[in-house]
Structure formats: C-alpha cells, structure tokens
Design a protein around this nucleic acid. Sequence first.
DNA 1: TTTGTCGGAGTGTCCGACAATTGCACAAAT
DNA 2: ATTTGTGCAATTGTCGGACACTCCGACAAA
Lengths: 250, 250
Amino acid sequence: MPRLERSPTYRLVFDAIERRILGGHLKIGDPLPTEMELAEQFGVNRSTVREGIRLLEQEGLITRDGGKRPRISAPQYKDLASAASRALVLHAVTFRELWEASMLIEPATAELAAMNIDPVELERLADNIRAMETAVADLESGASFDVEAFVTLDRRFHEILAEASKNRVLMLAHEPVTTLFIPAGRIILPRLKTWRRVLDAHRVIHGYLAAHDAAGAREWMRKPMDDFRRGYALTGLDFDTPLDAAAYAR
Amino acid sequence: MPRLERSPTYRLVFDAIERRILGGHLKIGDPLPTEMELAEQFGVNRSTVREGIRLLEQEGLITRDGGKRPRISAPQYKDLASAASRALVLHAVTFRELWEASMLIEPATAELAAMNIDPVELERLADNIRAMETAVADLESGASFDVEAFVTLDRRFHEILAEASKNRVLMLAHEPVTTLFIPAGRIILPRLKTWRRVLDAHRVIHGYLAAHDAAGAREWMRKPMDDFRRGYALTGLDFDTPLDAAAYAR
DNA sequence: TTTGTCGGAGTGTCCGACAATTGCACAAAT
DNA sequence: ATTTGTGCAATTGTCGGACACTCCGACAAA
C-alpha cells in the first residue's frame, strides 16, 4: 500500500523556504522575511510559520543572532558534527568502528594537509604545540590536573590539520569522529600519562607538514592513534562495547 | 567580553528533552509525553513546547507517524546524509574535494566489506549485479534511455557494500558523498557510456568479496572511480568549480 | 562627539479555541 | 467468534489575538 499521508503545514512551510534557499532565491546572508510576511505569503498562521522556522533553525539553514531578524546561512560543521555524534551514540556504535574510521580519516587528512597547508596554519599549529608544551609540563610536574586543557588542545591540533587539508568533505567527516573520541580521551590519558608521546608526535608531524612531506605526515599520524587504541585496551575497555551515551550528554 | 545571552525557552525545552533521551530516561521507541504534560512539567506554554519539539523532530530524535503520538528514535542515516549534502553544496564544495574523500572512503569500505560481508549481503549484491546486467543490456541495445535506473543501481551497490563493512561510522560518511555524486553521474555516464566497465568492475569486486580478498576488493574499487574522474574531465567539467546547488534541490 | 529618549518593527511567549485524527471500549451484525 | 459500526476521550495541528522585551534608527540634549 502506498501509505498516503499529507505533510503537516509547518513542514510544507519548511520545504518551501528550503527550496527558496537551495534555489538561490534566498541567498546566504540574506535576512529571512518576517514571520508576518511569511504567514501572509503562505496563507497560514504565524504560529505555523514559526514551527516551520524551527525546523530550518535546527537544520542550520538560518541563524538567529540575539532577538533580531534571523539570517540565511550555510550549515556549520559544528552543528552537523554534533548531530552525527548523537546519531552514532544512539545507534550504539562501538569503539572499534570509530577507530577504524578514524584510522582511515586522520592519516589521509595529514597527507592532504602536508600538500596544502599554508604558513598561517603552520604557525597556528606551532602555537598549539607551544601551548601543549606548557600544559604537559604542568601535568608532569603535578602543578595541575587540568586534563581538559590537554584534551582540548589535542582536539584543536587535529582540527587545524583538517582545515589545512583544504578538503571540506574530510573536515565534515572528521568532526564527529574526534567529538566521540573526547570522552574516551578523558578516561585514557590520565591513566596512561602518554602526554609526552602525543606532544612529541605533534612536533614531528608539524615538521613533516612544514616540509610538505605527505608520506611522513601520514605515517606519524598513525602513531598516537595506535597508542590510543592500546590505551583503550589497557584500561580494560572493550572494543566492541557500544560507546556510553551518558558520557556524551553534555 | 563574554557576550552573554540566554537561550530562548523553546531551545531549553529542546535541550531538556534531548538530555532525557541521551541520558536514557526516554528510550528509543518510547512515546514522547504529550505536549500538555511537557508544558506543565517545564512550566511553559504548549506553543513553546511545540517549537522545541520541532527542533527534536528535525534532528531526527523523534518521528511522527501520522497524526499520532511521536516516538523517540535514533536519527536515520538518510536524514543526516541529506543534511550533510545540503551543507556541502551550500559551502560550494568542489568536485575535487568530493573525489578525494571518496577515493579514501570507498576503497576502505570495500576492504572492510571483504572481511565482514555475510552470505545474505553477497546475495543482495548478486541480485544488484543481475539487475544492472539487464539495465546495461537495455541501454546498449538502445531499448531504453533509463539512465536513472542505472544510477540508482550503482548507488545501491555501494550502499550494500557500506552495510557489509559493518562499520556505521563509514556508512554515515559514505552516504552524503554518494548522494553528491549522483547528479555528476547523471551527466557523465550517458556521454561516455561506461556502463559496461562499471558493471564488470562490480562483478570482479563481488568475486573478491566472496573470496574475502580485502586487497583485491580495495584495488578494484579504485578503477570505476578513476574512470569517473576521467569522465568528469572529458566532459569538460572543471574539478575546482563548486558543485551546482540547483542540481541538488530535489 | 557622545549620551539620552522615543517610537516602530519583530521576535519570544503566552492564552484560548476548535477541527481532525487516533485509540479504545462497547455494542451490533454476520 | 470474528468482524463491523458507534461514541467518547485524548492529542495533535492550526488558528487568532495579545503583550513584553529587544533591537534599531532618528532626533534631541549635553
């Protein structure tokens, strides 16, 4: 049976506006027409329009900057990444799947980054490494237990690399995976204290990137990831156990 | 300056319900509490609750099955894929980026599939190949110009492979990329008439998968993709021109 | 030039209402 | 006994109207 059903009006509103955006009638940066205008144009109530707008909003097609007029925008990676992360967690994805994908994406990202990185990004990486040096020194000296700072810097390193690859498809694939690694990192790193090894690897990778040595960058990107896998096993966590949903409910 | 701002209430509603889902208080398949209940619990108006629910809905965290009570659900890959595709197109991603990512993901998918594929999926692939045989025969004999059928079968082939990889992260990364390839395929394939080569490659890949030969599968997956890249150039299309948004506004 | 005031526009939130549909229980018919 | 019809309660979808709050530009005052 064809299972006929008609969409609710608020969804039709969403579809209509979406088409206007993708069709180019509403360009990125343009302000969305006022809710009243839309309500009149579509011949529906303002409340209904608002519900349609919420769909657009969650999709990232419009951004609201304070209480003022929303504007059309291209969905941000962050939004998609968090959506993807949520989905993967709810689908009870395992660490093995995550790691397999990461082992694929990260070295390739490093490779492309080696070919396409520009001086500004190299300098940003250098800054990141310097910051991580002090973070590691603090952690090793016991002056601080700020694991979060280290994890954030590590993530930022990979993020800059993804940008440097100049490949937005990879960037998009990259984000959710690193997001899901974070909670695992928070658990593993403090136990194994592999700060120094991570930092060293970052330094070497930075060197390869500066020299535009794709093969080298690729190879060294694998190392900290292998460490990570071993760390996961060493802390007694099982590869094939689904990731814990609760840990991701920020 | 910390740029302080408070989220609108409907977003707080979204956050609250989202946390309940990720925290496991609301399990997948459960019905969402009624709008009235939620309004009372949160101490807000039903309209506000509804706007929050629209956010959940677009996120794919709830599905509405006709006019009845919405149920909690894990976001489907299809939804995420279409969102990602939209985002990439709006970000004016180029064919080069798409192809680079695909050249990374597809062979790896084939490799994993060779290791993890089960008999059912092998049979599904065989069915797909048989269907493509008749499609190609029709196209070559001039009995039909149904390019769409061929493209759909090709897509389905890759989809089965992604499932067979048993890696849901890859599956997720896979979807948007193939989605974006479709319009290009519709243009390229009829001009170059490489149906036969694609079909042959699929046959060979199927053989490698049946033999659980990962290296072979990986290698042969590259071939039709290389064809595709050459085809793109031969039809006069530029690698670094952004994909056409209009072609994706279904 | 900066600061204060004012009104218009627009979003955020609330209230109340009603049609349409679904779910369920119960009676009627085969 | 299974199916079919009926009535009622619950719930969603849509509507209309209302008001507070914020942002913005204009214009006056220091």
